[in-house]
Every structure is written in C-alpha cells, then in structure tokens.
Design a protein around this nucleic acid. Sequence first.
RNA 1: GCCGGAGUAGCUCAGCUGGCAGAGCGAUUCCUUCGUAAGGAAUAGGUCGAGGGUUCAAAUCCCUCCUCCGGCUCCA
Length: 641
Amino acid sequence: MTVVLPDGSELDVPAGATVEDVAFEIGPGLGRDTVAGKIDGELVEKQATVHDGARIEIVTDQSDEYLTVLRHSAAHVFAQALQRLHPEATLTIGPPTDEGFYYDVTGVDLDEEDLAAIEDEMDDIIAADYDIEREVRSREEAKEIYADNEYKRQILDDEADEEEVTFYVQDGWRDLCQGPHVESTGEIGAVTLLNISSSYWRGDEDNDTLTRVNGTAFASEADLEDFLERREEAKERDHRKIGREMDLFSIPDHSPGAAHYHPNGMRIRRELEEYIRTKNDELGYEEVWTPELNKAELWKPTGHYDAFKEQGEMFAWEQDETEYGLKPMNCANHAHIFADSQHSYRDLPLRFSEFGTVYRNEQSGELSGLLRVRGLTQDDGHAFVRPDQIEEEIRQTLSVIEDIYSQFGLEIIYKLETKGDNSVGSDEIWEQATDALRGALESEGLEYDLEAGEAAFYGPKIGLDARDAIGREWTIGTVQADFNIPQRLDLTYVGEDNEEHHPVMIHRALLGSFERFMGVMIEHFKGNFPLWLAPTQVRVLPVSDDTLGYAHRVKNALDDAGLRVEVEDRDWTVGRKIRQAHDDRLPYMVIVGGDEEEVGTVSVRDRFENEASGVELDAFVDHLVDERDEKRTEPDFVDAE
RNA sequence: GCCGGAGUAGCUCAGCUGGCAGAGCGAUUCCUUCGUAAGGAAUAGGUCGAGGGUUCAAAUCCCUCCUCCGGCUCCA
C-alpha cells in the first residue's frame, strides 16, 4: 500500500506497517529518532498502524509536536507523583494542551502547598529517568485494573469496539493511555505546576466535580524560564492594570460586572461610537433607541425568556404584580419597531442599529475586567431582509467588519457556530441559515473554525474572536442569521405577489460590546492608543513657568483644530514633565521655552522619543489633523519631518 | 455557581510564630524656575474588605459573607 509524506511524495509500505516502519523506510536515522507520528494530521504513537493513502508525518525531538508529547508524559509524571504522595487520588484524564498539560483527579483535596511537594516528587521521578514503556492489554483486563475507578471504566466503555487497549508504564506505575510518550521520564527537562481548579467530568456541569491541576513542561530549564517571563510580560498588557494607570475606567465592588467609564475612558468610547456610527451609516442602518426596562412578557414569544430567565441569566423581578426585566438582548425591541408599521418588499432590507445597553446575570466566577461584564453596551443592529437578500447582506456586513479590524491591526479568529441543544425552530430552517453564513464566509475567502452546537438559541452565528494578553479568546463581533424570531413574532412584509411573507433577521454587532472591545483595544495597543483614540493627544510642557503663557497659546491653537490637548502646569523640572508624559502614554508632547517663544515655534517629542525642534506650529497642527482623520496607528510626525 | 489564591494609605507592597499600623511612589504646602525619562524639604493620609467569634489583647487565629485574580462551565 501507499502512504503520502509531507512533501507530497508517495511511499510504498507493506500492509500493517506502523509509523515507525514508515520512518525506517524513509531512512534508518529517522527511524531511530522517531518519537511519534501524525496520521492524517492526528498525533499518534509510533506503533500506530497506517492505512492505505494515509498522510504521514514523523515526529522527532526536533518537531513542533515533540513538546506536546513531552507534556503528555509530564502529565503522567504528575499523576505518578500525586499517587505516591496521595495513594487515595483517583485519576481521570490528563491530556497535553497548547500551553502545557492538566490532570483531572478526584478523591483528594489539594491546595497550593501540596503542589510544591508534588513538584519535588516529580523532579525525583524525572531525575530517576525511568523508561516509559508501552503495554498492550485486553479491554477486559483493563476493566479489572480499574475496578475501583469508574472514570477510567467509562473511558474503556467508549472504546467498546477495541479488543485491546494500551497502557504506558514507568517504574511499575501505569496509566491507561493512547500515547504517544517520550522514551523516559528524564527527557522532561523542566516542569512546573501552575494552579489548581475544579472542572467537570467530560466538561458537563451536570457531571461530577473534579480537581484539575494545570502545569507545563519544557525540554529545558531555559525554555521554562522564557515561558514564565512571557507570562510576567503579559501582565504588563493587562487592561485592568493599564485601565487604572491611565484612569480609563473602574469596576467598584458595589457594581460587580458593571464598568464605570472615567473621563479618559469615555473619550475613547466616544471615538469608537462615532466611528461605528459612520460605518452603520455606510451600511444603511437607521439608528434607534429602545428601553432597558420592559415587561418580561416581551421576551416570552421570542424565546429569550426561556433562554435567559430560566437559566438565571436575566435580571427580572415582580413589581406591582407584574414581572419586569432588564433586556438581555435588543432583538425583541427592534422586532417591535419593525412590527409597528407595514412593510413592502421594496422597503427591504430595513436596518436598525442601536448602542443598546443590556444586562445579563453572568456567573460570578466568570466576570473578568471589561472582557466579561454583566452590563454591556453592544453596537447592535438588525437587518430585516427578504430571503433573496440574506447572503449579500451577511457578506457586506462581514466585509465592513474586516475593514474595521484591519484598521486596528487586530488578528481575528473566525468561527461558525451551529445549532445547539436548547435551540428553537426546525432543522430545515437552521440548515438554511447556516448555509447562508457559510456561503458568506466562503465568498469572502475567510478561513473559519466550525464550532458545533455553540450557536445562539434562535440561529447560527459567525463569531469573530480576538485574543487577550494571556491568550484567551473572546468573541467580539458577530453576525447571525435568524429565521425563527420573525416567525415567532409573525413579522411580515408584503411581497411582490401581494402575499404576506416573513422577513429574515440578520443580527450583528461590529465591535461586539464597547466594554469588551475597549478591553481588547487596551491590551492590543498596550495603552499606546493611536492618535485618534488617545484620551489626551498632546501635552504642552513649558520649560519653566516663564513660558506658561506661550504654552497656553500653543494649546489654544491645537484646541482650535479639535485636538485633545492639555498644558502641564505643575512646578516640575522639564525632565520630570517628560517622564510623566511618557508614563501617561501621550502620543505627542510639545516642549516650549524661551527659544521657541521668541520665534513662535515648538519642539515636538513623540512616544518613541523621536524629537524635532524649531517646528512651525501650523505644520504640526496640519499633520496631527491628518494623522487623526486617517486614523493612523502610530505617531509619525517626526518621521515625516 | 464550582476549586485554588488574594483583599493593609490614591497606587505598588511589607507587617500576619497575636502586643503602639509601615515603606516607596503619588497628594498637599513651602523652597526651587529648571531645555528632553524622577530637584529639595515638610505635612497630611488607614474602621487593615464587611460582620461575628476566641483572647487581657486580633491586620495577625476561627466562622460567615462581599469583591477581585487564575481555571472549569458559560458568553458580547
């Protein structure tokens, strides 16, 4: 039979050949170095047999995947160390992850002090350099081994069609495992345990609660140190830290999950709002406003009541014998505006936008700075379209969102999320809606991840995710196709055929919410906002109080151009004023002293420490206006000089 | 909501084997009027997250709650 190698070439191998056999066919050196392999992209142990036509990659200690293999072995070392110290611990699963590994265990209470002892034990196991050996046993034998471990038995039951299963054994300790692993524990150069948390068996909160220990491992101590250093550096990007330093926002203890925008933060938000207004205008949206407070009955026919209230995610209460609630989404109100008048097919698409403030009772453990809050304002919008307009509407929206994100230089992960368990509407409708989203993604040439079962309750969703400083993904923009709510509310337009038809609702948010987007922006720019977004764009620093008057005249000239400018009038040395302006992340500072006042010029310094002296004020103002209006990302006046 | 960690001055943090609440930065006042990343001095500033308990005595030990951080689940 034939297998395909990464370079596209084909290799004939005997039937029943393993990955390792393939490696030896390629060359004896490679054969000896083989740690594991990939069959059709999936990481497998080197003993795995290949099938005809398989795409084969050989994993050695030089491969990117080697770290994954190493970390899987580190998870085993952790589990062995844990059971040496706590024989009562029951093991469940312990896979490698992108950043390291975890092991979910139960039957043992752990806190951080235990971790240090376990790490010491792990170091001993690594130092002993035990061989890691593969062991094949029958499924029945395995079930006997795990007579008192229901979790491992469940895993074995999932493999019901397999006669034999594999264990990996080191120093007489064994774990049910498909591999692959490194040859011996000594190959793990450096390991550390990072935290303890709880998790759910098979990720389902209805199942048992387990204890998860997260850790990571590297081939060398130096690599681990780099990793820990990068983590420390990421903290410097944290929007909560920068938000405090720049006085952008606060989330006081009395308002969990509800951000208070300070003047500096509100300056940024206003710029974002105005930017989105122009985009909504371009897309043909009419701005509306709808109330936060409504009777709960508003959300019963749409399905929101069931989806949010029943999950405890909606703020609702009884008042004067009537149930009221705060809106968790804007769709129902927008649908009401649509329903309030008659529409002809000629009127469609009809588009409403709103900076709609919604409230959701997110679980307390989920709140995270501006990235996950309970009160948020979405740059929401709903387009009511005819079936023949769906795909074009989605494509056009996606195209604008792409423009916006590239404006900011944001890297985006596209996701297509499909029908989940608690959805409303028929499968046919969902398929139609999902096809429309997929078609738009593909016609825009966008790569996306398919996330099955993750959609909104009323329709499938394209999610646009950004990463935060520590690598977590957060959905910002979204485009959703909804055939359900228009039917449920009996929204209609009169067609060319003089019959009533249901429109389709396209739900979309370009930035997502101002809260989350601001959080992402702060971390993306590390607080060094482009001129157009910077809370203060220019600070004028008089060399001494003697030039305070001239400093104010310079400020007035910048004010007149609509720039956000302030004068540093504190009784400080110039060096101190410059230091402070850098700490405050000012894009530009202007330094004026007797020399400048005499000839009517200024000295300019930007956040990169670039300097220009003898600058004509008009030229500087003209440049700033252009830089702002073109939304350029970095200050470039001094470069341009 | 669950597991682990944390909450002391505006900020960052020390003190926590129980015995008079501390530092640096910032703020205020005074001196200094300064040319490209911190001038000097003095002063003010705290219900030690909240409530309860143990004790002669609690920031420190115990309990309950609140909030935050990391992870799980969930999501814009």
